[in-house]
Simulated scan of single mutants.
Amino acid sequence: MPNTLIFVDLPADDPAAAGRFYAEVFGWRDDHKPEGVYHRMVPGGMFPNPDGTDSQIGNLHVGIFDPANARPHPDAEGIAPREIAKEGRKPRIWVLISDDDTPERILSAAEERGATVLWRNHFWGTFNGLNHCFRDPWGNEILLWGKAGDPPRIPDDYTHE
């Protein structure tokens, strides 16, 4: 049996503000544990079966932690580094766009809250997805993934690879 991925954590020097950002942009529940130290973003729902019904698998959660003192850690003072990585590549988070939402709404909501849109309207044929990307106010890259369909329906203004 493989080991199971249960969380991915994003750094933010203000976890409470980041929790509000993701709650407002994606509609996720901001479950602070405790507020300002560690926030668990709960997307809710279950992964869908191929027929669209709920499976027995709950959606993954995203954690938000303060790099000044990343918890948990055996030392009450935490460990260095204590700042957000600003340069170079970092892990990226992929979010599937809900069938009742749009990339335009998500990108607009993110931008209104301080995010930077990195690209829009790109088709990646390898995984048959329509994608878009933004950088949140803390430097984390969030890629939006939309289903292109079978056969794929790619709008004329999309770039391709």
Rank of each mutant, 00 (worst) to 15 (best):
F65Q: 06
P67Y: 13
V37F: 06
H122A: 13
A23Y: 04
P50K: 05
E112G: 02
L60P: 06
P81N: 14
W138K: 03
R20N: 05
D9R: 01
V62N: 01
P91F: 15
D31A: 06
W124T: 11
P72M: 08
E104M: 02
A16K: 09
T126D: 14
F134A: 00
N59M: 10
A18W: 03
F134S: 00
M41R: 00
S55Q: 11
T102P: 04
F26S: 03
L130P: 03
Y22T: 01
E24H: 09
V95I: 14
N59V: 08
R105E: 10
Y38G: 00
G58C: 06
R40S: 00
P67E: 13
D100W: 09
T102K: 05
P81I: 14
P48K: 08
N140T: 13
K90I: 12
G36P: 08
E87G: 11
P81T: 14
G125S: 14
I142P: 06
K90Y: 09
F47T: 04
V117D: 09
R113F: 09
N140K: 08
W124N: 11
H132L: 02
G58W: 08
A109C: 00
Q56Y: 14
E104R: 06
P43E: 01
N140C: 11
D100P: 04
W28H: 04
A17E: 05
A17I: 00
R120Y: 12
R20D: 13
R135H: 03
D100I: 05
F47I: 07
D100T: 12
F127T: 07
T126K: 12
G125V: 08
D13M: 03
R71D: 07
Q56M: 13
V37P: 01
R113D: 07
F123G: 09
I93E: 02
A68P: 09
Q56C: 10
F134E: 01
S108R: 12
D14N: 10
V42Q: 03
W119G: 05
N49H: 09
G36W: 11
P91V: 09
K33Y: 10
E24Y: 08
G36I: 05
E77H: 15
D54P: 08
R105P: 00
T102D: 06
W94M: 07
I64S: 01
G44C: 02
V37N: 02
D75V: 07
S98D: 14
F127L: 09
N121M: 12
I64W: 07
M41L: 15
I106A: 00
S108M: 06
G63P: 08
F127I: 10
W94T: 01
L96A: 08
E141K: 11
W28N: 01
A80H: 15
N131S: 12
T102N: 06
A109P: 02
H122M: 12
L130E: 04
I97H: 03
V62W: 07
H39Y: 03
V95T: 02
E83M: 15
E112Y: 06
P48E: 09
P81G: 14
R82K: 15
L118D: 13
E104W: 04
I97Q: 03
G125D: 15
A23C: 05
H61Y: 11
I57H: 13
Y22R: 01
V37E: 12
